Simulated scan of single mutants.
Amino acid sequence: MRLLLLALLAKEPAHGYELKQELEQTFGSAYPSPNIGQIYVTLGRLEKDGLVRAVDVEQSNRPNKKVYHLTAAGRDALVTWAAEPTEGPRVRDEFFMKLVLAPMTGIADRMALISRQRRHYLGLMRDLNDLADRVDPGNHVELLLIEGAMLHLQADLDWLQRCQEDLR
């Protein structure tokens, strides 16, 4: 959330509710809508860390609002983030840990775990397909986000099949 807010503030100063709206408009319904409280808490931390500064703006019929501006340190943090590669595959996969530990501990049957996980992934895939059907075809950002999630799910489903074959 921190870096998303910094990126939006690099575009222009804004207050918390404007940032929430911008996130929702940019990423659409495929991206979980952030809680406004989480946004303001994060902005407070960014301000404390010197990455943004808040300016009180007077309003005539409402309480003053805080408009946040990106600082030079915030821009540096954003540039560093953009330049760094994003983490790759998960080596510490929680499902795989369950799968490996199940026979040692007797907590679950491996094939039952695989079947349950497969059903879960297929349900998520159906949800993403439904979501894709409701997206405005002109919203390329949201469609790419959904497509990326679907491709990751398909890879996870393929991997589950491999696990099932190897662990029989």
Rank of each mutant, 00 (worst) to 15 (best):
L160N: 09
L19I: 03
R62W: 12
P32V: 02
P137M: 02
H140M: 12
A83S: 15
L78Y: 02
I114H: 00
V55D: 10
D166I: 14
P85Q: 14
N139K: 10
A155N: 08
L4Q: 09
E142V: 05
F96N: 05
Y40T: 03
R119A: 11
Q117Y: 11
A14M: 13
R118L: 10
P63R: 15
D156Q: 08
R134H: 09
E47S: 08
R45D: 06
P13H: 02
Y68W: 07
M97P: 06
E18S: 10
G138M: 00
L8H: 11
M97H: 08
D158K: 01
R62C: 13
V57K: 14
D127P: 01
K20D: 04
V100G: 07
H140S: 03
V52G: 02
E84C: 07
N64I: 11
H69G: 04
D93R: 05
L101W: 09
E12C: 11
L9N: 09
S115D: 10
A102S: 10
E147P: 09
V67D: 06
L5H: 12
R118E: 04
F96M: 15
M104Y: 12
T26V: 04
L6A: 10
T26C: 02
Y68P: 02
D133I: 00
H140C: 00
A82L: 10
I114F: 04
L70Y: 14
L5W: 15
G74V: 00
G50H: 13
C163A: 09
E22I: 10
L143M: 01
L99Q: 08
A132I: 01
